[in-house]
Design a binder for these strands. Structure first.
Length: 217
DNA sequence: ATACCGATTGGCT
DNA sequence: GCCAATCGGTATC
């Protein structure tokens, strides 16, 4: 019997799925991590912090697909980040997997992160993608089983196991990390979720406030 | 065609 | 804490 979470799990609203992913085991390419930090992005809801805020583009196409697809994107000219699409088909909701604790495949993880402390292997979204060997070749792929039957839709061997969720009493929320502009406002979008007291959770950093006109005065 | 910028990270002060 | 790295995507001209 397949240990994976069913597609119905991901078809819920992103604000339900993001905290529910905490504590789950995520495995790819020989390394398994216990997810300790996530963030929700809801293009459908007019979330200005979302890549999907300005509508469909070739880059964000996977977000507009069905729940259960990966959305792996490239940023800062060097980093890849893993997101998991949730919600209704076309809703452009996704969870960013920000951090995790390596619980299996330590030798492989260490080989991918030479000179890096074990605590930092997946402490941050780009670090997590590196340790799990995820890049642009892994975007827009179906990680659910059974897979959807759609022309051209390929699958990925990314395993999210059921039965490993975090204690709800230990879940904390706060503003998203490094989101510039209005989408970074924690009072409006406290959509970051993490497990309390976990050393693998990434440090908080506010987004850059960018004024549309010059400085005041 | 070109300018701007990012859901970050690592190195240095 | 500050800042450079590095380049594809997107908007704008």
């Amino acid at each position: 019997m397949d240990p994976r979470l069913p597609r119905a799990f991901f078809a819920r609203h992103v604000l339900e799925v993001a905290p529910d992913l905490l504590g789950r085991n995520l495995a790819h390419a020989g390394v398994t991590v216990r997810i300790t930090e996530t963030e929700a992005y809801a293009g459908e809801a007019g979330d200005p912090g979302s890549h999907a805020f300005r509508g469909w583009t070739p880059r964000t196409a996977p977000m507009f697909g069905p729940a259960g697809l990966t959305y792996v994107y490239f940023t800062y000219g060097m980093h890849w980040m893993l997101c998991l699409v949730t919600g209704r088909d076309g809703g452009a909701q996704a969870v960013l997997i920000r951090a995790g604790e390596v619980i299996a495949g330590h030798e492989i993880a260490a080989a991918r992160r030479p000179g890096v402390a074990q605590r930092d292997w997946c402490r941050g979204p780009a670090r997590l993608a590196t340790t799990l060997a995820l890049d642009g070749s892994h975007t827009g792929l179906d990680f659910c089983r059974p897979p959807l039957r759609r022309p051209g839709l390929r699958s990925i061997d990314l395993v999210l196991r059921a039965g490993s969720s975090a204690d709800p009493a230990l879940i904390r929320t706060g503003p998203r990390v490094g989101v510039s502009g209005p989408g970074g406002d924690g009072s409006a979008y406290p959509w970051r979720f993490w497990i309390d007291a976990e050393p693998t959770v990434s440090p908080y950093r506010p987004g850059v406030l960018r004024t549309s006109s010059g400085p005041p005065g």
